[in-house]
């Protein structure tokens, strides 16, 4: 179990009293999301769609590298890692 930082998009920080990051203990990237939703259940409908998939316009980045959440089960994380949830942007 490693202590990691999860960074949230700005609009979702209203569910964490304004904090853009959540510190939690997890073993894998997928586990990280489980722990995040345990800590902040209100995030679930905003991160995952009705099929339980990560919403289409969100991306997950682990220490700067894109991660496919559907295949991240075994992607271990180390103490001090950062998992970032990015909102897709477009335009200028």
């Amino acid at each position: 179990m490693a202590t990691v930082t999860v960074r949230l998009p700005g609009l979702l920080s209203r569910f964490t009293e304004g904090d853009r990051q959540v510190i939690l203990d997890a073993e894998t990237v997928e586990d990280c999301f489980d722990r995040l939703l345990e800590a902040v259940p209100a995030l679930e409908p905003h991160l995952f769609d009705g099929d339980g998939d990560l919403r289409a316009h969100l991306r997950v980045v682990h220490n700067g590298e894109p991660v496919d959440l559907a295949t991240s089960e075994a992607q271990h994380i180390e103490a001090g890692d950062t998992v970032t949830i990015l909102q897709a942007v477009s335009g200028g």
């Binding site: 609009l11 209203r14 259940p41 209100a42 409908p45 905003h46 991160l47 919403r55 316009h57 897709a88």
Partner: peptide, 24 residues
């Protein structure tokens, strides 16, 4: 929100603070 989906929320102070339904 087109990225984050839709929920029911409520405010007991005319909009300053909001709480989200447990199951929207």
């Amino acid at each position: 929100h087109f990225v984050y989906g839709s929920t029911v929320q409520w405010s007991d102070d005319l909009g300053k603070n909001w709480e989200q339904a447990a199951e929207s």
